[in-house]
Simulated assay, not measured.
Amino acid sequence: MNIGMIGLGAMGQAMARNLVKAGHSVKAWNRSGSPVDGVTMVASPADACQGDAVLTMLSDDSVIRSVLLEPGVLSAMKPGLIHVVMSTISVAFAHELVALHAAAGIDYVSAPVLGRPDVAAKGELNILVGGAPHATATLGPVFDALGKRVWDMGADAPAANAAKIACNMMITMAIEAMAEAVVLTEANGLARESFFDLILNTLFGSRSYQVYSAIIAAGQYEPGFKASLGLKDLRLATEAAGQAGRSLPMLAAVHGQMAATVDAGWGDRDWSAMAALTIG
């Protein structure tokens, strides 16, 4: 397929390489202009929107708005193109994008992903897909190149965004749970490595616990997924809860803790640095 990409951060670069490796023709635009082997860099976002599909990997609602909506790129998209937003955006903005694309006659799909850059590089992302069945079916070869499994979130695109936000919320809850458990166990003479060995082999063996227990045990919070982006996602979760008319106490706790992490100057460190704030 002829695929455009808009946004080549750590995740976008890994995804672009895998698309090229799978035999797709990839044209990309990035604000920094950073090249990727095998990818043709184009001069504008509109130039990346002239193929079969365009994948957007921009950091948040405001960037998508400034790059695509305000300059009128939507109206310049090739007829028949499918626009796929694969970053984490708000549920409210996803609803807005659905309406705007419908008015422009362009298929829109939400396909946020679960996985850090190392997972993206291996082509093992979990892809949460919401959108019209004919559009999501067409994208099968694209998703096959990027992920190990596609999770069908239904025909309403914003459902995929809600699922991604909820997943990220739960990861931060797992990070905070482990940090608080370390406070209790280390205060009573048990090394965190021994405690993590226990929980990983009994109660909590999922990937999130595996990945972040290792980071917490080492006390090394090198950037993987930045705390500033984690704070953004928790803000999106808080907004979605408000739109549902609900107050979520665990969400409020991790939102506050992540905000404190960023305020402490750790916004560019991995979001699991939140644990260091709790453990002290």
Rank of each mutant, 00 (worst) to 15 (best):
M1L: 11
M1K: 09
G9C: 02
A10M: 11
M11F: 09
A14C: 11
M15A: 12
M15D: 06
R17H: 07
N18F: 07
N18D: 12
N18T: 11
L19P: 10
V20N: 02
A22L: 13
A22W: 07
A28V: 04
W29A: 13
P35Q: 02
V36H: 07
V42D: 06
V42K: 01
S44W: 04
P45H: 12
D47Y: 04
D52N: 12
D52W: 06
D52F: 11
A53W: 12
L55P: 07
L55Q: 14
M57V: 14
L58K: 06
D61M: 00
S62F: 01
V63D: 01
I64W: 01
V67H: 11
L68F: 03
L69G: 01
P71W: 00
G72W: 08
G72V: 11
V73N: 05
S75N: 14
K78D: 07
I82F: 08
H83T: 12
H83G: 06
V85R: 13
M86H: 07
T88H: 12
A92G: 09
A103C: 04
A104M: 05
G105P: 05
I106A: 07
D107I: 03
V109L: 12
A111P: 05
P112M: 00
P112Y: 00
G115Y: 02
G115K: 13
G115M: 10
E124D: 13
L128I: 01
L128E: 00
G131W: 00
G131D: 04
A132I: 08
P133E: 08
H134V: 11
H134I: 01
F143T: 10
D144Y: 03
A145E: 09
K148N: 10
D152W: 00
A155T: 15
P158K: 01
A159R: 11
A163G: 03
A163D: 05
K164W: 02
C167P: 00
N168G: 05
T172F: 15
M173D: 12
E176T: 06
M178L: 13
E186D: 09
N188L: 12
G189L: 06
F195K: 07
I199R: 06
N201D: 03
T202E: 06
T202M: 04
L203P: 05
L203H: 10
S206A: 13
R207D: 15
Y209T: 14
Q210E: 14
I216C: 02
A218F: 02
E222L: 14
P223C: 10
P223Y: 12
A227V: 05
S228R: 15
G230S: 09
L231E: 15
L231F: 13
R235C: 07
L236C: 02
A237N: 07
T238F: 03
A240Q: 12
A240T: 12
G242F: 00
Q243Y: 02
S247Y: 09
L248E: 00
P249F: 09
M250C: 13
A253I: 04
A253G: 14
M258L: 11
M258W: 09
A264Q: 03
G265I: 07
D268K: 13
D270W: 01
A273M: 06
M274Y: 09
A275D: 04
A275F: 06
A276F: 04
A276M: 06
T278L: 14
I279K: 08
G280P: 01
